[in-house]
C-alpha cells in the first residue's frame, strides 16, 4: 500500500484577484524525490509555504502524514525540514551558534547533531566563522544543515542550489540522493531548471500559473524526451505488422495522425526503409526527432 506523506486536494491560494495556486491536487509518496518545476512566479514557493504552515490556503484541503485538522497538522510540521527561498540567517552569530539556536527552537537535545550536520554539508571547518562573512553558497549549505536538524521525514527545499558553484551543486545533489536512499526521506525540491532537477528527482510536478500541468515519473519523462524515428505511410497497421515481423521492433507508438514513432533500432534507417519498400509500403515521411528537456517543459506549460 502506498504511504502518502502529503496530500492536497483542490488547493487554491488567492491574493485579491490573483490566483497564486489554483485547484492543486497532489500526492507525495514516501521515499521519493519530487521535483517541483515551474517558471518564476508559477506558484512553487507559494505551494511550499502553504505546506510549511507559513501561509494559509484560501480553499482546498491539505494533509500532512494523513493529518488535515489544523491543530494536528501543526504538530506534524515537526516531522518536516524546510529551506524556503534564500536562507537569511543570523549574521552576527557563527554557523555553530545558528545551528544551536535552531536546535533549541526545535527542542533537539543532542548537541553532537550540530557538528555532524555541519560536516555533512561541508561546513565542518568553518563552524566558528561568523555567518555574515559566508558566501552565498555557504549560506545555502548552512540553510540545508538547519533544515536537516530535526531528521525530517519530508524535506522541502526551494531552489537549494541557487548560488552554489558547480562543485557545490554536485555535492548537494549527491547529498539529496543519499538522504532519500539512506534515510528513506521524501524530498520536495523546486527549481525553474528541468535539466538540473532531471539529475536528482524521481518524480516531477510541472506547475504553471498556479496550476499543476503534469505529474510524471522519471521513466515517463525519459520516455517523453526520448529520441525517435517517425515514419509516415498510408497503411500504418501494415507497417506496424512488418516492423514486428521482419525487424523485431516492438518499442513503437502509433500517433493520432497515424504516424509511427520507433524508439528502438532508430539508427537503422536504411534497413527499415528497404524493408518497407520490399513489403510494398511507400514511406511518405521519415524524420528523426526527440524533445529536449527544455522543449518538453515548454510544450507542457504551453510555451514555444
Amino acid at each position: 500500500m502506498k504511504q502518502y506523506v502529503l496530500q492536497t486536494k483542490h488547493l487554491t491560494k488567492k491574493f485579491k484577484e490573483f490566483h497564486a495556486l489554483l485547484d492543486v491536487s497532489l500526492e507525495l509518496e514516501k521515499g521519493k524525490i519530487y521535483g517541483l518545476i515551474g517558471k518564476n512566479g508559477a506558484g512553487k514557493t507559494t505551494l511550499m509555504r502553504i505546506i510549511s504552515g507559513l501561509s494559509e490556503a484560501s480553499s482546498g484541503e491539505i494533509a500532512l502524514f494523513g493529518k488535515s485538522d489544523k491543530k494536528r497538522y501543526e504538530k506534524e510540521l515537526k516531522r518536516i525540514g524546510t529551506l524556503i527561498e534564500y536562507p537569511t540567517l543570523n549574521g552576527g552569530m557563527t554557523a555553530k551558534e545558528n545551528m544551536r539556536l535552531h536546535r533549541i527552537i526545535r527542542g533537539i537535545p543532542n548537541e553532537e547533531r550540530e557538528e555532524e550536520l555541519l560536516e555533512l554539508v561541508g561546513l565542518g571547518e568553518v563552524g566558528n566563522k561568523l555567518v555574515k562573512d559566508f558566501s552565498l553558497g555557504m549560506h545555502q549549505r548552512l540553510g540545508i544543515a538547519i533544515a536537516l536538524l530535526p531528521s525530517p521525514e519530508l524535506l522541502i527545499l526551494d531552489e537549494p542550489v541557487n548560488g552554489l558553484d558547480p562543485v557545490g551543486v554536485v555535492e548537494i545533489r549527491t547529498l539529496i540522493r543519499q538522504l532519500c536512499e539512506q534515510r528513506n526521506m521524501t524530498i520536495l525540491i523546486s527549481s525553474h531548471n528541468l535539466p538540473e532537477l532531471y539529475q536528482t528527482a524521481t518524480d516531477y510536478i510541472i506547475i504553471d500559473q498556479g496550476m499543476v500541468k503534469k505529474t510524471l515519473t522519471l521513466e515517463q519523462l525519459e520516455q517523453e524526451c526520448e529520441q525517435y524515428l517517425e515514419l509516415g505511410c498510408d497503411e500504418s497497421e501494415h507497417l506496424v505488422e512488418v516492423l514486428e515481423r521482419r525487424l523485431g521492433i516492438h518499442h513503437y507508438k502509433v500517433m493520432p495522425d497515424q504516424k509511427v514513432r520507433l524508439y528502438e533500432k532508430k539508427e537503422e534507417v536504411r534497413k527499415i526503409v528497404s524493408t518497407m519498400i520490399e513489403e510494398g509500403i511507400l514511406p511518405t515521411h521519415i524524420y528523426t526527432a526527440g524533445e529536449s528537456l527544455e522543449n518538453y517543459f515548454l510544450s507542457v506549460i504551453g510555451g514555444e
Partner: peptide
C-alpha cells in the same frame, strides 16, 4: 523584527508551534 528577517519564525512554526 530579526525573527522575521532571519526567518527564525519559519522554524518556530515548523517546530509544530501554533
Amino acid at each position: 523584527s530579526q525573527d522575521f528577517e532571519s526567518k527564525n519564525i519559519h522554524d518556530e512554526i515548523a517546530a509544530g508551534n501554533g
